[in-house]
Simulated assay, not measured.
Amino acid sequence: MIRVLVVDDERMVCAHLRTILSAAPGLEVAGEAYDGAEALEATVRLRPDVVLMDLRMPGVDGLTAIESIVTLPRPPKVVALTTFDLDEYVLRALTAGAVGFLLKSTSPEDLVDLVRVAAAGHTVLSPVAAQRLLGATTGGPAARDLTAALTEREAQVLTGLGAGRSNQQIARQLHLSEATVKGYVSRLLVKLGCDNRTEAALLAHRAGLLPRELPRDT
């Protein structure tokens, strides 16, 4: 059972998310919090697996809460919730330790899938949100320079990270073992100077790798 903490200052948003998540097999809403301070306290008390964190809240905001939560012993996976009022908040949330972000308008089916992916420790990048975010950032030429020296296989693995795929999914689509993909990911992080999978995924978007299609499942 994946336990989820929902954090948003709008109680109707929390109720909506609770309804969607509670109806999904294998998911349980452990609780709700309505600002960053409550989120930190609830995380310590309830020990959820995933925290869905609104970024803009009165009092202690989501960004500050994320910075505190990721320093806890055995912290949960934090996913930023956004309406994209301030794109730079999302970049700061990822840097602070969030494993990804999603739009509040995400469909119920996608929301459930993204929570499960996040709980497994993988990057969560909503395609629409990623394109909006990356369109507001710079660094394309530098990212292309970094990725130009990658082998074809390394570029395929990086593309998979950019698409938010797990090691298992990338392995299946590239007809590799999961251990081989894990090795590729570790080497990519060192080669590209990225601290985590989320940074590598953003780099893949900036470098323009996402239009490249991975082989289809067989």
Rank of each mutant, 00 (worst) to 15 (best):
I69R: 09
T138F: 12
T43R: 00
P108N: 08
V124E: 07
G121C: 01
K182I: 00
A39F: 11
L63V: 12
K104H: 01
P108D: 08
A80S: 14
D49H: 15
N196H: 06
L17C: 03
P73L: 11
R144T: 11
D113N: 05
R3S: 13
L192D: 01
Q169K: 11
T138S: 14
G121E: 07
D110K: 14
A42G: 08
E199I: 03
V50L: 01
E199M: 11
F101D: 06
G183N: 11
R74K: 11
S68G: 06
L188Q: 02
A136E: 07
D54M: 06
S105N: 08
S22H: 13
D35T: 08
A143Y: 05
I2C: 04
Y34C: 04
L55C: 02
T71M: 14
L52I: 03
R144H: 08
G164C: 01
D85W: 00
Y34F: 15
R212Q: 14
T71Y: 02
L94H: 09
Q169D: 14
V157P: 08
E178H: 07
R153C: 03
P127S: 05
N196A: 01
S177G: 15
L174P: 05
P48W: 01
Q169S: 12
A39G: 10
I20V: 15
K182Y: 09
A24F: 09
L214W: 08
R56V: 13
E152W: 05
N196T: 00
Q156F: 09
G62M: 09
T180L: 14
G135H: 01
L63Y: 10
S68H: 13
L94S: 03
E88F: 13
A207Q: 08
A130C: 09
S166W: 03
T218C: 00
R216H: 12
T43S: 00
I2P: 00
A96K: 07
D8N: 04
M12P: 01
A65K: 12
H16C: 07
S105H: 11
L150I: 10
S22I: 05
V4H: 10
T64E: 15
P58K: 06
R197L: 04
S126F: 04
G139C: 09
T137P: 00
L189H: 02
E152Q: 14
T43D: 00
V78P: 11
N196P: 02
V50R: 11
A142K: 13
V13D: 06
R11N: 12
Y184Q: 08
Q131K: 14
S126P: 09
V90M: 09
S177M: 00
L81A: 02
T71E: 15
V181H: 13
D54V: 07
A37E: 15
R45L: 02
V13Y: 06
G139I: 03
K77C: 10
T83V: 14
E38M: 12
V117D: 07
G59S: 05
L202C: 15
G36T: 07
T147F: 05
L188V: 06
D217G: 14
A33L: 06
D49L: 02
V124W: 09
Q173W: 04
R216C: 04
R212K: 13
M53Y: 09
